[in-house]
Amino acid sequence: MAVTDTTVRAAVEPLTAPPRRRRHRSPATWARRGGLTTLLFFLPLLLSFGYFSWWPILRSLMLSLQQTNFITSTWVGLANFERVLADPLLGIAVWNTTYFSLLALVVGFPVPILTAVFLAEMRRTRGVASALAYLPVIIPPVVAVLLWKAFYNPGANGLFNTMLGWVGLGPLAWLNDPDLVIPSLVLYATWAGFGTGVIIYLATLMTIRTELYEAAEIDGARILRRFWHVTLPQMRGVLLIMLLLQLIGTFQTFTEPYIMTGGGPENGSLTILLLIYRYAFVAGDYGRATALSLLLAVALSLLSALYMWATRRWSTS
């Protein structure tokens, strides 16, 4: 096909034509085009997030660089961070928190998955059973923690020790034993949190197409292979996000040690959040408290990023 003059001109024109004048949008135009309405709808969101989320974040950033008693504040640079990193309790708190998280992962993560798989197999009583599984979540955390504190009574007549006594074991000191305190807290946390996991996993299981199981069955897969090759891969998106949420949640454990043990015995259950609390409300040192909060936030962000990167191959999104 011959190249006509018109074609050439058409191709060249956009390049040689003077640039189109950028349309000036005056405030009046902006308002006429609905800008005000947009702003009106946007403002409550902006104000509420600004006041309740962004401003406290900015404020804590500022506090971490200050020494303050809320009457006068002095800028101290990175001194608060140095003091946090030099505190011998930090190592203890990091170790306890990591131990708690890992134990909660090993013990607490599979329990709701297996329970959900089991419940999914139930036909008639699934509704009642899942409601029963969810029941612990309905109990207010403080009440539940206090209840478990009583269960963990280290005397021979404590509930758990009585049960152990039936099989000739114990009594154990539970929360009073520096070696048992974290496992005891994990046991409680697993009980308290597994109801939510069960409901989420159960909902995911219900979305898996039955044809996949039928096909696997025709191929001769037994129950374990069906679980391994069908159930788990189909749930992987939810599993990955739940694992991340659990990691972040357990690294921020506070209520259980605060109410049950106060971080004791001998700082055996001192977690990072409890240390932050002590900095702020025992020592009245908000600079150190916010510095450690920021360090934790950075560590959790890095952990999350690393986790997302490491699991990108299995991710569904």
Partner: peptide
């Protein structure tokens, strides 16, 4: 607060 841990240590 520092001494709490000392007392707990002796008693546990």
């Amino acid at each position: 607060n520092t001494l709490d841990a000392v007392v707990q240590g002796v008693l546990t």
